[in-house]
Design a protein around this nucleic acid. Structure first.
Lengths: 218, 218
DNA sequence: GCTTAAAACATATCGGCGTTATGTAATACT
DNA sequence: AGTATTACATAACGCCGATATGTTTTAAGC
């Protein structure tokens, strides 16, 4: 009374193929039949391994959050915590722009397609705020931010930058108020509203821009 | 050589039904067959009047932007332009929460389903920024905001509040950092980053909260 | 080592989707 | 009155997710 073993290659293969299809062709390329074709199997594989299409999507969303987490963790701490914070914002945006379809599914897929994320799934998203919270605390300790709730500051960063990124991905930000310009302004504004000086904020944001290509990559 | 006249009731009926279905049951309830059933017609009506499902969706998105525009226009000017600005933010959020599925299609539908918005469609969205730009200018003139680019300020408001609203609609904001709390903080932070005093900003935001139920309705 | 239960898959099918092809009825101009 | 043109109905095509029903493989129990 023992079951047949699954081919250990099929499950990760399905995830890989699905992630590639999502990245290259968008969400409408994610179908059981397409996956079966690309994986040289039948549509049933998706059901045995993930219980359906939404299960596979959830798996990919998990990976998306993990990738975001990795991006944020790669930002090193320096003696300018405000610049570190700005770099966290840049890393967040960089990750979203590098995986636009995935990002759309992570944050917009809940209400749109049939895909509905679990509360546990969303917890993954909130977990990535930890890096930002820690950085905000360091900004307090350095006297750069008003001593307020670090988590609240993190949520403000998240909202503002997430909003900018989604507008950017939706092509709502065009010249002369393009995403680049709005983003730089947004970063500075966030630091100012958290208590930093106008000049210090501008300096730190500029500094984070120089560190950008070195510490953030896909 | 003259055509048959369309029943003048069918087209608006389709839009009404579609809007209701979207609001009550979400985007997956929008299907040609479902519409045909509800309108007691055939699936062809959608094609003759809108050229397909996406055309009908675009029509509804237009209406969504018009409704948003109406909400923002109903905010009256007072002698406290910062409170007016905060009330614009409240009206924006109120509209989004009152029509969550529609809002999701307006800003997230581009990349997700098959629906793709035209550049003209997006222009409707940007047009609603006009109210905010005007209000920002009044904040400059009142000496409450640093004299900077009014359109840039409007874009920052938009990004930040849009981001908060999408996170809220995606159930990413939960207690103790729920949407209500984050939103109030976000409003104040936006006023501060634009140049207003900490205390004045808090006062104006509080003032806007009192005006809220009177001037903003669905 | 055979039996057997259970899991991994394949095949076929169902209902639903957007869309298109084809047919029919109605209208307003020539 | 004739006719072109459009509105709409019906039916079909090719997708989709999902399920039901085999079929094969595996490992545990005897």
């Amino acid at each position: 009374m023992s079951p047949r073993r699954a081919d250990p290659r099929t499950r990760p293969a399905l995830v890989d193929i699905a992630a590639r299809l999502l990245a290259e062709e968008g969400p409408q390329a994610l179908s059981t039949r397409r996956l079966a074709t690309e994986a040289d199997s039948s549509t049933m594989a998706v059901y045995t391994h993930f219980g359906g299409m939404s299960g596979l999507v959830r798996e990919i969303v998990h990976e998306g959050f993990a990738r975001l987490q990795r991006h944020l963790t790669h930002v090193r701490q320096t003696d300018d915590p405000v610049a570190d914070m700005a770099l966290l914002g840049r890393a967040y945006r960089h990750n979203a722009l590098a995986n636009p379809h995935l990002y759309a599914v992570m944050f917009g897929g809940a209400s749109l397609a049939g895909f509905s994320l679990t509360e546990e799934d969303r917890q993954h998203g909130r977990y990535t705020l930890g890096n930002v919270v820690k950085c905000a605390t360091r900004c307090f300790e350095a006297g750069r931010f008003r001593a307020e709730d670090a988590e609240l500051v993190a949520h403000q960063m998240w909202s503002a930058i997430h909003g900018l990124v989604t507008l950017e991905l939706g092509d709502y930000l065009i010249a002369p108020y393009d995403a680049e310009r709005c983003f730089e302004a947004q970063l500075t504004a966030l630091m100012i509203s958290s208590g930093d000086d106008l000049d210090s904020a501008a300096r730190s944001v500029a500094l984070s821009k120089e560190r950008m290509p070195l510490e953030v990559e896909g």
